[in-house]
Design a protein around this nucleic acid. Structure first.
Length: 829
RNA sequence: GCCCCGGUAGCCCAACGGCAGAGGCCAUGGUCUCAAACACCAUCCAGUGUGGGUUCGAAUCCCACCCGGGGCACCA
C-alpha cells in the first residue's frame, strides 16, 4: 500500500502515538536546563466524574501556548494536579455510602487517563493531589506560619451558614441572591467562633497591584476584584450617645459624606451588632430582642432585597450631633451591616436614599443641606428622592455657600480633626477570609485547644495532623464537624503543658489548598519544606494562567493574598502569582449553559469517539477568541476532521527527501509559508489562537495549489510548507501533526522539532497594490514597489488616467500620501 | 441602581484609523463516480445595532441611545 492510499484514522493514530510519547517523555521540565524558563499553568481540576467539555476547552487553549513555548526553545513547566479535597466528594460518599477517598482517587485516575488521551503537554512527573498527606501537611504548615504572624486568627461573629451543607461559607461563596455557591440553598446567619485569614491586611496592596496586572489580565476580572475589594474614602465621625444609665458612650461612624454631617438627623446601629444590645434603653429592650430574633430568622435572600421595606426598632436613646449639638434619636435596623465600617451610621436622609426610606417609614426628620439646584429632582424633604450630586451647601454652618463636594468633604474633615471629633478614613468592602469548615474531607486545622494554654499550635515536628480514616462513619452534616466523633483523634495531650486537650475539629476551606498549589509544583516531592524558594524564584511567577471567570474573586484573590504573605515571610521574591491571566469562555449548547435539567449536555467522551481528539481540540481552538463562549451547536467538528485530513494528505504528496535546501524552492509558496509563520508568532503572543488556525488553513490551501497546479510535489518549497503545517498543527492537533511528521521522513516528536526560522527576505513583496482615493473613496489601484517614495507615489497617482479624468476642472486642496499603501486626494469643484 | 464586555453575510468569526472578508460552516453549480460519499474547482451573500461628532479618511476614536451577555449590589 502506498502512502497515498493510506487512510486517516484518528483512533489508530491516537493509539500509536500515545505509546511513543510515553517513551520519549517530551514535556518533563528540567530545573537545571540552560534554556530560559516559562511557567504555564491551567487551573487544576476538581475530580468530579470524568473530564467535560470545559476541561477540553481550557486545556486545548492552554496547550497552544505551552507547546508553542517548547517549540520556541523555552524550558516549559506545565504541571498538572488535582484539587481533591472538598464537599462534592463528601456528599457523593454520603449518597453512595462510601469513603470520600474512594470517590476522589477513582475520579482522579479516570481524569488522568482522559488527559493523557487528550494529549495535553503536561509534565506528569510533578503530579500532586491536595488531599494527599504529603500535600496537606504543608497546607497545615502554612496555616501555622500565618498563625504565627497573626494572619490566621479566631473570632466570634455572625457567619454565613448553609443549612443544607451544614457548614459555614466565606462571603465569596455566597452568591448575589444569597444562596450557597455549592448547593444553592438559602444561606442564613449564625453566631460562631471561627478561623479567619487576615486578607484585609493586604487590602490596599491587593488593590494597588491590580494596576500592574491590568494590561495582562482581563478587564472583567480586574474590575471584579476592584469592586470586591471596594475601597472607599471618607471619615470617621464621633457621636456621643446618652445611655439610659446616665453614662455617655462615644460611638464612631464611618461615612463617605462627612460634608453632610449637618443633615444627620438620626443614627442607625446594625441590629445584630453587639453595640445595639449594649446601648438599648430598658424600656425598648423587649422590642429590640423581638426584632433581633425576627431578623436572625430571615435569610440573606430576604435581607439583601433592596425593594424590601425598611424595618427597625427605636433604641430609646439619643446622641449628640457633633456639629449642630442637636439630640438625635438612635435606632437599630438590619439595613446597616454589622461587619462593615463600625457597624453604626449617621443617617443623612436628604442625601442617601436608604436613610430617606427609613426616615419615611418611621417618620424621622429630613433636612436638606445640599441644594442641588432647580435641574435636579427637587427638595428631598418633599419628594422623598435623595439627592447625591454637587450643589450649594445650606444649613451647614461654615460650609454654607460652598458649591463643590470635594471641597466640602475636605473642609469638614479638617474641622473634625481640629476639634478631635473625627478623622479622615479609608474603608474596604473586603472582609477577612473565613476558612473553618465543619466538614470531613479537608485539611484538619492544626490547632489544639487546651483549657490551660488556650489555642496551641501543633508543633511543626508533629505535622501532619492526619485526617482520621472514619471509614464507615456517618459523615452526614450535623452542624459540627464529623471529626468531633473521632474521640481517639480529638483527645490529645497539650503540647505545652501536657494536660488533656482537644484538637480543633474543623477542616480548612478547600480554597486554602488551591491558594498555593502552584508553589508546590516546583518541588512536589520535597519532604523537607512546602516548596523550594530558589526554584520558586527561578520559575515564577507564572507566565500565563488560564482558567474561568467563575474564580474572578475567589481563587484568584486568595492566591494573590497567599503570594503576598509568602513574600513577606521571605519565602519567595515575587509578589503577584500570575503575570498574565487568560480567562476562557464556557462551552454552551444551543444558547444555554449545559445542564442535566435542560438535557442539553454534550459528552466530551462521545465527541472524542466520533471526531477524534485532534478534531475536537481544533474545533475548540478555532471557534473564536478564547474569552468568548463557544456554542457547541454552532460548531462543526466534522469540518475540523475534513481539514485535518486535507492537511494530513499533503504529507503523503511530498515526493522530495528530508533535509532538502528550501532556498531553491518556489518563491511564491515559500513566501506564504514564511509570512504565515511570522504572523502566527504575533497571533499566539496576543492569544488569537482562532486566527492561528485560519492562517494554517490558508497555508494548507496554498500548498495544495502548489502541488496540484503550481510548482508540483517535488519542489523543495512544498516540503518546507508541509513541514511548517506539521509544526503549526503540533500546537493544536498533536496526533495528526506527529503522523505527518513521520510521513515526511522525520523521527518523533514534532512537538520538539523547533520553530522554523523565518526568512525576513521572504516577508517583503516585490510589488504591492496602492490605493488611490478621491474624497476618501477608492477610485484607482496602482501596482507599486514596496519602497516607493511618497513623492513618486503621489506622482504616479496624479498621472493615472482615471484619476486625471476625475480631477478635471477641480482644484486640489490637499493630498495625503501614505506610501506605499495609499494616496487620498481632496479636491473641490 | 452601579461597573465591565460585546453587536460585521443565513451561522461561527477576520480586518496597525486607510480597498469591509482572512478562515470555516451552510447552500448552489461543476469535475470525479454506474450512483453516492470523500476530494477538487467555482459561485452566492453584509456596508459593520441606531443617531450624532472628530478626521482627508471611521467597523475601528468620542458622545448619546437600543439590544445581548456577565459581574457587583442596603458597603453608609
Amino acid at each position: 500500500m502506498s502512502e497515498q492510499d493510506a487512510t486517516y484514522d484518528a483512533e489508530a493514530m491516537q493509539e500509536k502515538w500515545r505509546a511513543v510519547w510515553d517513551e520519549i517523555d517530551p514535556f518533563t521540565a528540567h530545573d537545571d536546563s540552560p534554556r530560559e524558563k516559562r511557567y504555564a499553568l491551567t487551573m487544576f481540576p476538581y475530580p468530579s466524574g470524568d473530564l467535560h467539555m470545559g476541561h477540553a476547552e481550557v486545556t486545548a487553549l492552554h496547550d497552544v501556548i505551552a507547546r508553542y513555548w517548547w517549540q520556541r526553545g523555552y524550558e516549559v513547566l506545565n504541571p498538572i494536579g488535582w484539587d481533591s479535597f472538598g464537599l462534592p466528594a463528601e456528599n457523593a460518599a454520603i449518597r453512595n455510602d462510601a469513603h470520600p477517598a474512594d470517590y476522589t482517587y477513582g475520579n482522579i485516575e479516570t481524569q488522568a487517563a482522559s488527559f493523557k488521551k487528550y494529549a495535553v503537554s503536561f509534565d506528569w512527573s510533578r503530579r500532586l493531589h491536595t488531599s494527599d498527606v504529603e500535600y496537606y501537611k504543608w497546607t497545615q504548615w502554612l496555616f501555622l506560619k500565618f498563625h504565627e504572624l497573626g494572619l490566621a486568627y479566631r473570632k466570634n461573629s455572625p457567619v454565613n451558614w448553609c443549612p443544607n451543607d451544614q457548614t459555614v461559607l466565606a462571603n465569596e461563596q455566597v452568591l448575589a441572591d444569597g444562596s450557597c455557591e455549592r448547593c444553592g440553598a438559602e444561606v442564613t446567619k449564625r453566631e460562631l467562633t471561627q478561623w479567619y485569614f487576615r486578607t484585609t491586611a493586604y487590602a490596599q496592596e491587593l488593590l494597588d497591584s491590580l494596576d500592574d496586572l491590568q494590561p495582562t489580565w482581563s478587564d472583567k476580572v480586574v474590575n471584579a476584584q476592584r469592586n470586591w475589594i471596594g475601597r472607599s474614602e471618607g471619615a470617621h465621625v464621633d457621636f456621643s450617645m446618652h445611655l439610659a444609665s446616665g453614662e455617655d458612650r462615644t460611638v464612631s461612624v464611618y461615612t463617605t459624606r462627612p460634608d453632610t454631617l449637618y443633615g444627620a438627623t438620626f443614627m442607625v446601629v446594625a441590629a445584630d451588632a453587639a453595640l445595639a444590645g449594649e446601648i438599648v434603653a430598658p424600656d425598648q429592650r423587649a422590642a429590640y430582642d423581638a426584632y433581633l430574633a425576627e431578623i436572625r430568622k430571615a435569610s440573606d435572600i430576604d435581607r439583601m432585597s433592596t425593594e424590601r421595606p425598611k424595618t427597625g426598632v427605636d433604641l430609646g436613646i439619643t446622641a449628640t450631633n457633633p456639629v449642630t449639638g442637636e439630640q438625635i434619636p438612635v435606632w437599630a435596623a438590619d439595613y446597616v451591616l454589622a461587619d462593615y465600617g463600625t457597624g453604626a451610621i449617621m443617617a443623612v436622609p436628604a442625601h442617601d436614599q436608604r436613610d430617606l426610606d427609613f426616615a419615611k417609614q418611621f417618620d424621622l426628620p429630613v433636612r436638606r443641606v445640599v441644594d442641588t439646584g432647580p435641574d435636579d429632582t427637587g427638595n428631598p424633604e418633599e419628594t422623598f428622592i435623595a439627592t447625591t450630586g454637587d450643589g450649594t451647601y445650606v444649613n451647614s454652618g461654615p460650609l454654607d455657600g460652598m458649591t463643590d463636594k470635594a471641597t466640602g468633604v475636605s473642609a469638614t474633615i479638617a474641622e473634625l480633626e481640629k476639634n478631635g471629633l473625627g478623622e479622615g478614613a479609608v474603608n474596604f468592602r473586603l472582609r477577612d477570609w473565613l476558612l473553618s469548615r465543619q466538614r470531613y474531607w479537608g485539611a484538619p486545622i492544626p490547632i489544639i485547644h487546651c483549657p490551660v494554654d488556650g489555642e496551641v499550635p501543633v508543633p511543626e515536628d508533629q505535622l501532619p495532623v492526619e485526617l482520621p480514616e472514619l471509614r464507615g462513619a456517618d459523615l452526614k452534616p450535623k452542624g459540627t464537624s464529623p471529626l468531633g466523633g473521632a474521640s481517639e483523634w480529638v483527645n490529645v495531650a497539650c503540647p505545652n503543658c501536657g494536660g488533656p486537650a482537644t484538637r480543633d475539629t474543623d477542616t480548612m476551606d478547600t480554597f486554602v489548598d488551591s491558594s498555593w498549589y502552584f508553589f508546590r509544583f516546583l518541588s512536589p516531592q520535597d519532604q523537607t519544606q512546602a516548596f523550594d524558594t530558589d526554584l520558586a524564584n527561578a520559575w515564577g511567577p507564572i507566565d500565563l494562567y488560564v482558567g474561568g471567570d467563575e474564580h474572578a474573586v475567589l481563587h484568584l484573590l486568595y492566591a494573590r493574598f497567599f503570594t503576598k504573605a509568602l513574600r513577606d515571610m521571605g519565602l519567595v521574591n515575587w509578589d503577584e502569582p500570575f503575570s498574565a491571566y487568560l480567562s476562557q469562555g464556557k462551552v454552551i449548547n444551543n444558547g444555554r449553559k449545559m445542564s442535566k435539567s435542560l438535557g442539553n449536555g454534550v459528552s466530551l467522551g462521545d465527541q472524542l469517539a466520533e471526531f477524534g481528539v485532534d478534531a475536537v481540540r481544533l474545533t475548540l481552538v478555532f471557534a473564536g477568541p478564547p474569552e468568548d463562549n463557544i456554542d457547541w451547536a454552532d460548531m462543526s467538528p466534522g469540518g475540523s476532521v475534513r481539514f485535518l485530513q486535507r492537511a494530513w494528505r499533503l504529507s503523503g504528496d511530498v515526493t522530495s527527501a528530508p533535509g532538502l535546501d528550501p532556498m531553491t524552492g518556489d518563491v511564491a509558496l515559500r513566501k506564504v509559508t514564511h509570512k504565515t509563520l511570522h504572523e502566527v508568532e504575533g497571533l499566539i503572543e496576543s492569544h488569537r489562537f482562532n486566527v492561528v488556525v485560519a492562517r494554517t488553513m490558508e497555508l494548507v490551501n496554498a500548498t495544495r495549489k502548489g502541488i496540484d497546479s503550481g510548482c508540483g510535489p517535488r519542489d523543495p518549497a512544498v516540503r518546507e510548507a508541509v513541514e511548517a503545517v506539521a509544526i503549526l498543527l503540533s500546537l493544536v492537533a498533536p496526533y495528526t501533526a506527529e503522523e505527518m511528521w513521520e510521513r515526511l521522513g522525520h523521527e518523533p516528536t514534532v512537538a520538539r522539532a523547533g520553530w522554523p526560522v523565518v526568512d525576513e527576505a521572504l516577508l517583503v513583496d516585490d510589488s504591492m497594490t496602492a490605493v488611490v482615493q478621491v474624497q476618501g473613496k477608492v477610485k484607482a489601484r496602482l501596482e507599486v514597489s514596496p519602497d516607493i517614495s511618497e513623492a513618486d507615489l503621489e506622482a504616479a497617482a496624479m498621472t493615472d488616467a482615471r484619476i486625471m479624468g476625475l480631477l478635471e476642472g477641480k482644484t486640489i486642496k490637499k493630498v495625503i500620501v501614505r506610501a506605499p499603501k495609499l494616496v487620498n486626494i481632496v479636491a473641490e469643484a
